[in-house]
């Protein structure tokens, strides 16, 4: 007897728990729906601040690192910075990435080509220069 009642009670409890869970789900979905449209609007602002932070810190890093470069190596410095600034190729690769051809892919293709000239040319000419700097025997 008592056992039956207990099972009945448990079933009711389970039912209400499920109902509660469903309610919570609905609430969560509602909350998400509320937040979702706000996110893209805010995201550009916050991403910009984050990227700008990175930018400012990188300028400082560049400043201190470059003042440490010996004047004798200023030419290799120019050619190596030229080579690494071709990291712009990452943007070009994404543009050239899609399977089907359109204007943007053409731009990407050209940009990949131009950046490749620089990457190969820049690093090789830097290497050539640095190879020549030798100490007194």
């Amino acid at each position: 007897m008592a056992n039956e009642k207990f099972t009945e009670g448990m079933e009711k409890l389970a039912e209400s728990a499920t109902a509660l869970a469903n309610q919570a789900d609905a609430l969560a979905a509602q909350a998400a729906a509320l937040v979702a449209p706000a996110v893209p609007a805010a995201s550009h602002g916050t991403t910009f601040v984050m990227l700008f932070t990175i930018f400012v810190l990188a300028v400082f890093v560049g400043y201190y690192v470059v003042w440490n470069v010996t004047p004798a190596l200023h030419s290799p410095l120019m050619s190596v910075t030229n080579a690494i600034s071709s990291v712009i190729i990452v943007g070009a690769l994404i543009a050239a990435g899609p399977a089907e051809w359109h204007l943007s892919k053409v731009f990407g293709f050209v940009a990949v080509m131009l950046a490749s000239v620089n990457i190969f040319g820049g690093f090789i000419v830097t290497q050539r220069m640095l190879q020549m700097f030798k100490k007194k025997k």
Partner: peptide, 18 residues
């Protein structure tokens, strides 16, 4: 893309110092 920003800033400040 932070990699582009960092590299650009390095190159930019390097050229400015030179």
């Amino acid at each position: 893309n932070p990699a582009l920003i960092i590299t650009g800033a390095l190159v930019g400040s390097s050229g400015a110092i030179l």
